[in-house]
Design a protein around this nucleic acid. Structure first.
Ligand SMILES: [Mn+2]
Ligand SMILES: [Mn+2]
Ligand SMILES: [Zn+2]
Ligand SMILES: [Zn+2]
Lengths: 138, 138
DNA sequence: ATTCTACATTATAATAGTTCTAAACTATTG
DNA sequence: CAATAGTTTAGAACTATTATAATGTAGAAT
């Protein structure tokens, strides 16, 4: 509610009108020390915890998709019933904890460059992402 | 219909009764030179093309899940509305063609061992999978 | 071979995440 | 301020998947 001008500028310069719903979602997603992963359902819960003004589910979906399109969020391909989103938009990798069903970032610097000795003719590489599935060591 | 004994044995030794539905699905999935990727919907279409006996959708789901549980299929984590399955159960990686929305195998031998210089205490690595997103080079 | 039983199939309903609709609302422009 | 294009909203619709519960069947027991 206080230092919103940053988000207002960011939204406006992206061609998105700075509505109070979008600003609120910006605050929840981007006013954090650390980046994090979330589902739409997680976000809906956070919204209802931090404000009395309800934001409709359709708006939450619309906003997340708009932010993804603008490159402020990434969608993470984890085999699951729900989509996972990531506020870390830098190129990085993931651990997936199969017990906790939790995503954990792996910094790009912590993965040695992945060498792939095969190509597809007529196609260029857009990204190379590593998913490390982990489980309890017991 | 001809050389089913192989599948009958395979199913029986897995503790799965060799029903005609399961044998049919084995034929469609495993009587191929090459492995392939498919959705439930793809499989349903193949079934209706190759037989007059209908197999209910619930049975297709049940069978695919049973086969996955037994390790005869892998589920591939691609961000999509539907689950993708893979008849290639060896450890391997994938290209994902974002234009064709198509998965292409990368043999494990074609990827240099991926070195990850970070760990999660109390967790052990279950798998390391590389997803290479590609697009038209133009 | 007949009977028995646990397992499997089926049609259908239910569920859940997501998208669509169309009416009401609002930020921005003129 | 008035006009307009973009946005929000409640709720319906959609779609992949799972659950239900009745019927069918493979394999075992008799
Ligand atoms: Mn699923
Ligand atoms: Mn999706
Ligand atoms: Zn991440
Ligand atoms: Zn594959």
């Amino acid at each position: 509610m206080l230092n919103n001008s940053h988000y207002i500028d960011k939204l406006r310069s992206s061609g998105l009108r700075p509505t109070k719903q979008r600003i609120k979602i910006c605050e929840i997603l981007f006013d954090n020390e650390k980046t994090f992963h979330f589902t739409i359902n997680d976000l809906v819960k956070k919204i209802s915890k931090t404000t009395n003004d309800k934001i409709s589910l359709a708006t939450v979906y619309n906003t997340v998709h708009a932010f993804k399109k603008k490159g402020y969020l990434k969608e993470i391909p984890i085999n699951s019933d729900q989509s996972y989103f990531d506020t870390n938009t830098s190129h990085h990798h993931h651990f997936y904890d199969e017990n906790q069903k939790d995503l954990i970032d792996i910094d790009d610097a912590d993965v040695e460059p992945v060498k792939i000795n095969t190509r597809i003719p007529g196609k260029k590489i857009k990204s190379v992402e590593v998913l490390v599935k982990v489980e309890d060591a017991e």
